[in-house]
Design a binder for these strands. Sequence first.
DNA 1: TTGTCATTTCGAGCGTAACCGAAGTTTCTG
DNA 2: CAGAAACTTCGGTTACGCTCGAAATGACAA
Lengths: 234, 234
Amino acid sequence: MDIYEPVTKVAQLIGDPRRATILMTLVDGQAWPAGDLAQVAGISPSTASDHLGQLVSGGLLTVVQQGRHRYYRIANSDVAQIMESLASVAPPGPIRSLRQSDLRKALQYARTCYDHVAGYVGVAVTEAGIRRGYWNQEEAGYWLTDAGLAWLQEIGVPCDAGQRSIPTHIDWTERAGHLAGPLSVRLTARLFELGWFTRGTGTTIASKRTVVVTEAGKDAFRQHLGLEFRNARS
Amino acid sequence: MDIYEPVTKVAQLIGDPRRATILMTLVDGQAWPAGDLAQVAGISPSTASDHLGQLVSGGLLTVVQQGRHRYYRIANSDVAQIMESLASVAPPGPIRSLRQSDLRKALQYARTCYDHVAGYVGVAVTEAGIRRGYWNQEEAGYWLTDAGLAWLQEIGVPCDAGQRSIPTHIDWTERAGHLAGPLSVRLTARLFELGWFTRGTGTTIASKRTVVVTEAGKDAFRQHLGLEFRNARS
DNA sequence: TTGTCATTTCGAGCGTAACCGAAGTTTCTG
DNA sequence: CAGAAACTTCGGTTACGCTCGAAATGACAA
């Protein structure tokens, strides 16, 4: 009689503080070994193993063995999206320290999320590309134009000319779409390579999710996309 | 230290079978008294009251008192969207009866969801309107054209000519956007009035969420939007 | 006012699941 | 072939929260 059992199961898995911490740690698409995740969640390895097993059999995580490590990662981009969207419905919650407040602002400004850059910066880049005619908005995603293909090749992003469809993801802090999918992965990687982006400098894993636009990057985005970023702290 | 507490809290609230049933029952935006919800979830009134209290203080539901009844409803469209998206990541789950299978197909075909018609039909109507030039796709929603305004007035939907922006919602079974917001509410209500749509005939509350396109409606959609619906059972 | 209905509050019972330490398994290292 | 490292499995403890019935509250009707 319970048609909603699958929904309940997924929510229940996310609804444990340790598992939620693990999932949010992995939401940027990177893979971490079980031991590190245990430490992040503040639990013993055996408990973490239990939680990780549940998340895998629930379809939220996948695991690959490498040597004596087992690396866990988010199973697919839908799971990442769910975590992002949950984070947006949830009330902001009390800020308990200045560092927390700064971290939240930095994440809102720009963060890596599974296969792309999310937050204000991700949306701004996507929209600037539309204005420049590099890709067009479509019903369910974007369509790469010839001009866009040329630009991507110019800045050194490997492209397949036959693959013009770019999926979209909704950014829940900005309430707007941005590029996603394989092309977005390569573009993002290339922008890090070019030094337009760099990673946050904190010691915690969460702070490593933050993305910073370098001074060189600001110039480059202005020149290539006519894009003027707003300040990070606002 | 736990910055993810709000996320955990929301997921934990959804992650109980009874509460999930209550939320999914309310996801179409209607309000129901506590006693009815207790019956739907198959629990005693006192237990239901406890759950409902939790959902209200967690910000997922709101409650209005009318006489000696207290009517509960989904707090906002974000909550409805979360429930819809959770239902899509979750694996389909085993079908335990023919009736369940039929109900799921009907819900997938068309259902009322908070403030609009969702499912295949909702997406199809939205896209037909784009093809007809009644509204245009925009970055974060749709923009009502003059032709669209005229059409809406022609079929008797009250419109404010100054209010051209239409928000969007992502439909997770179809993976595409559809109309939402106040205008969508009025349009949907009018289509029921005109007899293009009618409600599902089942006795359960879930089956009442389903939407059926009438024969008259099929003709009307064909004539007005050039829209040919696929069959409901496929 | 009294009685009834819808709902909430309280108290107690109970089951499940998170948790850890110890032991077991697998894989790399010396 | 030991020995260590990374991780999982198992067993036992503990605590949280779901559950209901009984009683209290609040609203309406006679």
